[in-house]
Write a protein that binds this DNA or RNA. Structure first.
Length: 363
DNA sequence: AACACGGGGGG
DNA sequence: CCCCCAGTGTT
């Protein structure tokens, strides 16, 4: 019995050349890639990189256009009120990104646009990935990005099932083409997004197939091994609708969850608490008189399943136009619930009380 | 190191 | 239904 042959070393120059040749022919054309290679508009690259954190390109395109139209320059972004920034980000998720963009814009206008990895890394919302991306794409700095695409491509190329962060960064640093750092970074990400995909990689057209350990194994999707994920926990909550879907009492959410957005007044229902108790607690806090149950809305997030009982309520507090507020999908769902109920009524009523009386009569 | 943080696309 | 996505900040 002979020992297994030592793994063939990856010829780095050949891989670089194959990847860049493929990229020059097949790389994606994206709106934030305007301008010369290695000298892109840093504002546009920065916004795109923040937007694309944990967000797929196809989806990011819509928000990118909306955001750049609203805030064409870092000065425009810095001068805008935070509510306008969140409104432009509405529906995109991970709203800390929008808050940090706004904060960082203020820093940039005051101190100047950073031109180095370290300078970008110091800004809020900019971590190692984004600092490497902006400094390489806009300033031609030799920094290798490390994102989900890079992790997957390198784990497969080197057939490493459990790539650690330091391992990925070291491999990416070693593979980076110092002559074209920006193009190289874009090339790895394009490869990961279009060829070396998580579920169904197109190995037959991959420029790196000749050297890929995962392809040689016959099980490319086994690399990297799937991550263990935390269980989704269910959260019970109550909310009150004071007004209607066009004009309602809204409050600003603080804390981490949907922080900065507006929403219907709500309270988490503790496990030892009844719905009535939670509703009473909520109504005391917002100085409102509870009404009837309008319905229950469930909303799934990555690690939370929110079950929200929505009640009508009355209050002397001023109502604000819903259209102008930045709301989460959850709150839009609640307001949509009201609208769908309205459609089933005999008469169009303009008040929650009217809707409920109709439901009672037909029940 | 582990967790929190939105929302949607695609198998 | 499940996994993943051009990650970052907090604990």
């Amino acid at each position: 019995m002979t020992a297994a042959p030592a793994q063939q070393a990856i010829p780095i120059p050949a891989v670089q050349q194959a990847l860049l040749t493929w990229f020059d022919q097949s790389g994606r054309s994206l709106p934030w890639r305007a301008g010369a290679e290695g000298a892109r508009d840093p504002y546009r690259v920065w916004v795109a990189e923040i937007l694309l954190q944990q967000t797929q390109v196809a989806r990011g395109l819509v928000y990118y256009e909306r955001f750049l139209t609203a805030f064409p320059s870092v000065e425009a972004l810095a001068e805008a009120p935070i509510d306008a920034v969140l409104k432009a980000w509405e529906g995109c998720g991970y709203y800390a990104r929008a808050r940090n963009l706004h904060r960082a814009a203020g820093v940039i206008v005051a101190d100047g646009m950073p031109s180095t990895y370290a300078g970008w890394l110091a800004l809020p919302g900019v971590g190692p990935y984004t600092a490497a991306a902006v400094s390489s794409l806009a300033f031609n700095e030799g920094r290798a990005v490390n994102d989900g695409n890079v992790r997957r491509v390198l784990a497969r190329l080197y057939s490493e099932r459990l790539p650690t962060e330091p391992w990925v960064q070291a491999r990416a640093d070693a593979l980076l083409d110092p002559g074209r750092p920006g193009a190289f970074n874009e090339a790895v990400m394009d490869l990961g997004a279009t060829i070396c995909t998580p579920k169904a990689p197109r190995c037959e057209v991959c420029p790196l197939a000749a050297w890929c350990g995962a392809r040689a194994s016959g099980q490319p999707t086994a690399f990297p091994a799937p991550k263990v994920r935390a269980a989704v926990r269910e959260v019970q909550a109550v909310a009150v609708l004071i007004g209607n879907e066009h004009s309602a009492v809204l409050e600003r959410r603080d804390g981490a969850l949907l922080g900065g957005l507006m929403g219907l007044p709500s309270e988490i229902r503790e496990p030892d608490e009844t719905v009535a108790q939670a509703l009473a607690r909520l109504c005391t806090r917002v100085d409102a008189k509870p009404g009837v149950l309008l319905g229950t809305v469930t909303h799934n997030m990555t690690h939370r399943r929110i079950v929200l009982d929505v009640y009508s309520a009355k209050s002397a507090h001023p109502k604000t136009p819903v259209q102008d507020a930045a709301l989460s999908r959850l709150d839009h769902k609640v307001l949509g619930l009201l609208e769908s109920q309205r459609g089933s009524l005999f008469e169009v009523q303009d008040s929650v009380e009217g809707i409920y009386s109709q439901r009672v009569e037909t029940a």
